[in-house]
Every structure is written in C-alpha cells, then in structure tokens.
Lab assay of single mutants.
Amino acid sequence: EWSVQQVSHWLMSLNLEQYVSEFSAQNITGEQLLQLDGNKLKALGMTASQDRAVVKKKLKEMK
C-alpha cells in the first residue's frame, strides 16, 4: 500500500524522475500504480516506449 510519495521515490529509483510531477498531480498511489497499463502510462505522459517497458517489467516483478 504505497503512498503517492513512495510511488515518486520508486520512479526516481528507476531514473524516471521526469514523470514524478505528473504521477503526483494525478495522485497515483501504489494500488493505482499496479493497475496501470501501457495506455494509462501514455496518458500520464510516459510517451517513450522504453520507459513504459521498464515500468511494466518492474510492476510485474512486484505483483
């Protein structure tokens, strides 16, 4: 059960800090993070497919 802050730290740990402000603005918590798919990541401004791939891979490892 991650807070928005913990999601931000997680993104930073993946060197994806450029997305922290948008994820925070949308109040993405750990629970919501686990529901994100490629389209939702795109909607959050994650347009680079490599970045989405990293996030999806890491989320899969956490589930």
Rank of each mutant, 00 (worst) to 15 (best):
E1K: 15
E1P: 04
E1Q: 14
E1T: 11
E1Y: 12
E1W: 09
W2K: 08
W2F: 06
W2S: 04
W2Q: 02
W2P: 05
S3H: 01
S3A: 01
S3L: 00
S3M: 00
V4W: 05
V4C: 13
V4N: 10
V4F: 09
Q5V: 11
Q5H: 11
Q5D: 15
Q5C: 11
Q5R: 09
Q6W: 00
Q6N: 03
Q6V: 01
Q6Y: 00
Q6K: 05
Q6L: 02
Q6M: 06
V7H: 00
V7A: 00
V7Y: 04
V7R: 00
V7I: 08
V7D: 00
S8V: 11
S8A: 13
S8M: 11
S8I: 09
S8C: 14
S8L: 12
H9T: 13
H9V: 07
H9P: 00
H9I: 12
H9N: 15
H9Y: 11
H9D: 15
W10L: 07
L11P: 01
L11D: 06
L11H: 00
L11M: 07
L11V: 02
L11T: 01
L11N: 04
M12C: 08
M12R: 15
M12F: 02
M12K: 14
S13L: 08
S13N: 07
S13W: 00
S13Q: 14
S13P: 01
S13E: 15
S13M: 09
S13Y: 02
L14Y: 02
L14I: 10
L14R: 01
L14S: 04
L14H: 07
L14C: 08
L14W: 01
N15M: 01
N15T: 03
N15I: 00
N15S: 10
N15C: 00
N15P: 00
N15V: 00
N15F: 04
L16H: 03
L16F: 08
L16N: 02
E17C: 09
E17K: 11
E17Q: 11
E17I: 02
E17G: 14
Q18T: 12
Q18D: 10
Q18H: 07
Q18V: 07
Q18E: 10
Q18G: 10
Q18P: 06
Q18R: 14
Y19S: 10
Y19M: 09
Y19Q: 09
Y19G: 10
Y19R: 07
Y19F: 09
Y19P: 11
V20D: 06
V20L: 07
V20M: 08
V20H: 00
V20I: 13
V20C: 12
V20K: 13
S21E: 13
S21C: 10
S21I: 07
S21H: 10
S21K: 14
S21P: 15
S21R: 14
S21D: 13
S21G: 13
S21Q: 15
E22T: 13
E22P: 04
E22C: 08
E22V: 11
E22A: 14
E22M: 11
E22K: 13
F23M: 05
F23P: 07
F23E: 08
F23H: 04
F23L: 05
S24H: 12
S24E: 15
A25E: 11
A25N: 12
A25S: 13
A25T: 08
A25P: 03
A25H: 08
A25M: 11
Q26F: 06
Q26N: 10
Q26S: 10
Q26E: 08
Q26M: 06
Q26H: 14
Q26L: 03
N27P: 07
N27F: 03
N27C: 07
I28R: 02
I28N: 02
I28H: 07
I28S: 03
I28C: 01
I28D: 06
I28Q: 04
I28A: 05
T29V: 02
T29D: 15
T29H: 04
T29G: 12
T29I: 04
T29M: 04
T29S: 13
G30W: 07
G30L: 06
G30R: 03
G30V: 01
G30M: 09
E31T: 09
E31D: 11
E31C: 07
E31M: 08
E31H: 06
E31A: 13
E31V: 08
E31P: 08
E31I: 03
Q32N: 08
Q32S: 09
Q32F: 00
Q32K: 15
Q32M: 11
Q32I: 12
L33H: 03
L33M: 05
L33P: 05
L33W: 00
L33K: 06
L33F: 05
L33R: 04
L33C: 05
L33Q: 05
L33A: 05
L33I: 07
L34G: 06
L34T: 07
L34I: 10
L34A: 07
L34H: 06
Q35K: 14
Q35Y: 02
Q35M: 09
Q35D: 13
Q35W: 01
Q35E: 14
Q35N: 15
Q35L: 11
L36C: 09
L36A: 09
L36S: 07
L36N: 05
L36Q: 07
D37V: 01
D37W: 00
D37C: 06
D37I: 00
D37M: 00
D37P: 06
D37E: 07
G38W: 00
G38P: 08
G38F: 01
G38E: 15
G38L: 04
N39A: 15
N39Y: 09
N39F: 06
N39I: 09
N39S: 13
N39W: 06
N39R: 14
K40I: 00
K40H: 08
K40E: 09
K40V: 01
K40L: 03
K40W: 02
K40T: 09
L41C: 04
L41E: 05
L41Y: 02
L41Q: 05
L41P: 05
L41K: 04
K42I: 13
K42A: 10
K42M: 11
K42L: 09
K42T: 13
K42R: 12
K42E: 12
A43K: 12
A43R: 12
A43I: 08
L44Y: 04
L44I: 05
L44D: 07
L44M: 09
L44A: 06
G45D: 02
G45P: 00
G45E: 03
G45Y: 00
G45C: 01
G45N: 02
M46Y: 01
M46E: 02
M46G: 02
M46C: 05
M46S: 05
M46W: 00
T47V: 13
T47E: 13
T47K: 14
T47N: 09
A48W: 02
A48S: 15
A48L: 11
A48Q: 14
A48Y: 06
A48M: 05
A48E: 15
A48V: 11
S49L: 10
S49C: 09
S49V: 13
S49E: 14
S49N: 11
Q50R: 14
Q50T: 10
Q50Y: 10
Q50M: 10
Q50H: 15
Q50G: 12
Q50C: 13
Q50E: 15
Q50A: 14
D51S: 03
D51K: 02
D51P: 02
D51H: 09
D51T: 03
D51G: 01
D51F: 03
R52D: 01
R52Y: 05
R52H: 06
R52K: 04
R52W: 01
R52N: 00
R52L: 13
A53H: 10
A53R: 12
A53K: 13
A53C: 09
A53S: 11
A53T: 11
A53D: 10
A53L: 11
A53W: 09
A53Y: 12
V54G: 05
V54W: 09
V54Y: 02
V54D: 03
V54A: 09
V54L: 15
V54K: 15
V55F: 13
V55L: 13
V55G: 01
V55K: 02
V55Q: 02
V55S: 01
V55T: 05
V55R: 00
K56G: 08
K56V: 15
K56E: 14
K56H: 13
K56Y: 12
K56N: 09
K57V: 07
K57C: 09
K57P: 02
K57F: 01
K57E: 14
K57M: 12
K57G: 13
K57H: 11
K57W: 07
K58V: 06
K58M: 09
K58I: 03
K58L: 08
K58A: 15
L59I: 15
L59A: 02
L59M: 04
L59Y: 05
L59K: 03
L59W: 04
L59P: 01
K60Y: 12
K60N: 12
K60T: 10
K60C: 12
K60E: 15
K60I: 09
K60L: 13
K60F: 12
K60M: 14
E61R: 07
E61L: 07
E61T: 08
E61N: 09
E61Q: 11
E61A: 11
E61P: 01
M62E: 08
M62F: 11
M62R: 03
M62Y: 09
M62A: 07
K63W: 07
K63M: 12
K63Y: 06
K63D: 12
